[in-house]
Write a protein that binds this DNA or RNA. Structure first.
Length: 616
DNA sequence: TTAGGAAGGACCC
DNA sequence: CCCCAGGGTCCTTCCTAA
């Protein structure tokens, strides 16, 4: 929208530019790899992906984003016409407070393995070091530096990589191997900080403050060099590291000198803020493709650019986001690290991609196999879940999820399948011929499999208390001092640092894109009902002898006082809840009359415009 | 009003 | 074999039951 404001002569050109940029991926900024003829690479990638369904989908998303950005710009314009001095003042106070909370006393190190998977493979087959090589199939998980010279990068489609680098060698993933190697690396890290925080197997945070105290002869730099050297000696793996007064900065720093190097950000306000002032926004962890574009649109390219616009952050984005931006601008971040197993897992699931799948039977077969997979994972983790989540990706790459709270924790493939089937059935009706390229199942509301509420009484007892499942992983295998959870949170509270760390962005204020096509979701519930009935003998309890009886908490019907049967019925009722509107009476089998319109009537009502809260 | 369910996304590795 | 994964976390918005 710069020069010519014509309808759409060159607009496609414009659009493709940003798209091309996004296709090029984060590598050009995130990773330190430059010096590649990015023009050429971009061209190749663009041409290679052009016309594919994936590309089409990306285009649609890109258009949406563009629209959203227009909205943001409009609001910005409106805001600038107002007198926002109060805001400036308020934000400045906020900044002062943040600044006052700054803690530069800790020395945090972020250790990051270089092209981890590829490096591990090279250990087994040294000859691979000399040639471009990548790990992964359809999508590259990672690739060695030789391959990167061709513009190949992790996260790239395999066939595109092949075009960039015809001789590229592909290796299959071998997680066993990587896991072992990661363990070797960690053995070294633990010596410097027993409470190191392992990220995803190829990276970790260490707080070496204590270590430095105990080794006065060492500096942060020499200590880190020693860590890296020792890792290399022990695991034959080269790592990069970042040293900084907080985790966020350390993470950024470790990327600064990527292949086998390290970088330190001095623990002074000056050094930190100077560093941030020229740092591209995308370099920070929570800023991805989308947010980067939004920020750039309003004139924020580096973190230094935030300051002049600081008063617009709040009204333009959400509160959380505004706070996040300020924190980054100031170069603040968390100053503690702790073992990941003091962490509660929130969900567990599995998904898989396949070629165009359609038809009731194939889809059900896939659902079944997915359920079987998930059952294994659940068993492995000794977990049950109380909410099923079905995820589906159409052949057009559009993703939809349907979830259902069950009110009871389940874990067997059979249960999973039965719980998810109605969801699938609903989708089948929503999208006439349902054509999928991906299906996934995920459980949330996890509880410990060993003492999950299997009985109804507990169910209702727990219903109120959120997050009833309080199982903690007690892997004492490490043997390190295990801090009680409370103590930990107390400390956190006491230290007064706000934990807005891994803040993730999302569509802050969708300004509304009116491109929905009202689908006829009509028969969905009907089908779901049908399935629910057919799926099992869930409607049996009716004809039971009349001895002791319990009332169903859902439909109030009296039921035989027999655990299995009773639970089964309640399950049925719970699942029926969603479609209860389809059922006229509360008695009798659900014969689907006319269906719920719930989804239809929620139209597009006028969205509330931003509002500026009145300042006192 | 509020809490929690549901759906959609952004982002990370 | 698919010619752009899979495992997770967290944030937002909408909606409804209590």
């Amino acid at each position: 929208m710069a020069s010519n404001s014509n309808p759409d002569p060159n607009s496609t050109e414009e659009a493709h530019k940003s798209l091309r940029h996004s296709l090029l991926g984060p590598s050009l900024l995130k990773a330190g790899q430059d010096r590649v003829n990015q023009q050429k690479v971009g061209e190749i990638i663009y041409n290679a992906s052009k016309g594919s369904k994936f590309f089409k989908h990306e285009e649609r998303r890109d258009e949406q984003l563009t629209k959203r950005i227009e909205g943001i710009l409009k609001r910005k314009k409106e805001l600038e016409a107002l007198d926002l001095s109060v805001y400036v003042k308020k934000v400045d106070e906020q900044i002062a407070a943040l600044e006052a909370s700054r803690d530069l006393s800790q020395t945090i190190v972020h250790v990051d393995c270089d092209a981890f998977y590829a490096s591990v493979e090279e250990l087994d087959r040294p000859e691979l070091k000399e040639v471009p090589m990548a790990v992964g199939g359809g999508v590259l998980t990672t690739c060695n530096y030789k391959a990167r010279e061709f513009g190949v990068r992790s996260g790239m489609a395999g066939y595109i990589a092949k075009q960039l680098c015809p001789h590229l060698i592909f290796l299959p993933l071998n997680f066993e191997k990587y896991g072992q190697k990661a363990e070797e690396v960690r053995e070294v890290l633990a010596k410097y900080d027993p409470r190191y925080e392992a990220g995803s197997c190829d990276e970790a945070f260490l707080n070496i403050t204590k270590y430095l105290e105990e080794h006065p002869e060492m500096t942060p730099d020499t200590a880190t060099e020693q860590i890296r050297a020792e890792v290399f000696a022990h695991a034959k793996i080269t790592v990069s590291a970042g040293i900084a007064p907080n985790a966020r900065l350390a993470k950024i720093a470790s990327n600064q000198n990527k292949p086998n190097g390290q970088f330190r950000i001095q623990p002074t306000v000056d050094a930190v803020r100077t560093f941030m002032s020229t740092l591209p926004v995308r370099k920070v962890n929570g800023v991805g493709r989308v947010f980067e574009r939004e920020l750039q649109a309003i004139g924020i390219n580096t973190w230094g650019d935030v300051h002049p616009l600081r008063h617009l952050l709040q009204p333009l984005f959400s509160e959380k986001l505004a706070s996040f931006l300020l924190n980054c601008h100031l170069g603040l971040g968390r100053t503690h690290v702790h073992p990941v197993d003091e962490y509660e897992r929130k969900s567990i699931g599995t998904e898989s991609t396949f070629s165009d799948l359609r038809g009731p039977d194939p889809l059900r077969a896939k659902l079944r196999s997915t359920a079987v997979e998930l059952e294994k994972d659940l068993a492995n983790a000794e977990l049950k879940g109380r909410t099923v989540n079905l995820k589906v990706k159409l052949h057009t790459y559009e993703v939809y999820t349907r979830q259902k709270a069950l009110g009871r924790a389940i874990c067997t493939a059979e249960e999973l399948y039965n719980a998810a089937l109605p969801l699938l059935a609903g989708l089948e009706v929503e999208f006439r011929p349902l054509r999928l390229r991906l299906m996934g199942l995920r459980m949330t509301q996890l509880v410990d499999a060993n003492r999950g509420p299997g009985r109804l009484e507990e169910l209702f007892k727990n219903a109120g208390t959120a997050g009833a499942g309080k199982r903690k992983r007690e892997r004492d295998d490490e043997g390190w001092e295990v801090w009680p959870e409370e103590e930990f949170t107390q400390m956190k509270a006491a230290s007064g640092e706000q934990e807005e760390d891994i803040l993730l962005l999302s569509q802050h204020e969708v300004v509304d894109s009116d491109e929905e096509e009202g689908e006829e979701t009509s028969a969905a519930a009907a089908a779901a009902a049908e399935v629910a009935v057919n799926s099992k003998n869930a409607n049996a309890p009716e004809q039971a002898p009349e001895e002791e009886r319990w009332p169903c908490p859902i439909c109030t019907r009296m039921l035989p006082a027999e655990d299995a049967l009773f639970n089964e019925h309640v399950d049925f009722c719970l699942s029926r809840e969603t479609i209860k509107e389809a059922v006229k009476g509360s008695s009798g089998p659900p014969d689907p009359p006319e269906k719920v319109q719930q989804h239809q009537q929620q139209e597009k009502r006028p969205r509330k415009i931003y509002h500026i809260p009145l300042m006192p």
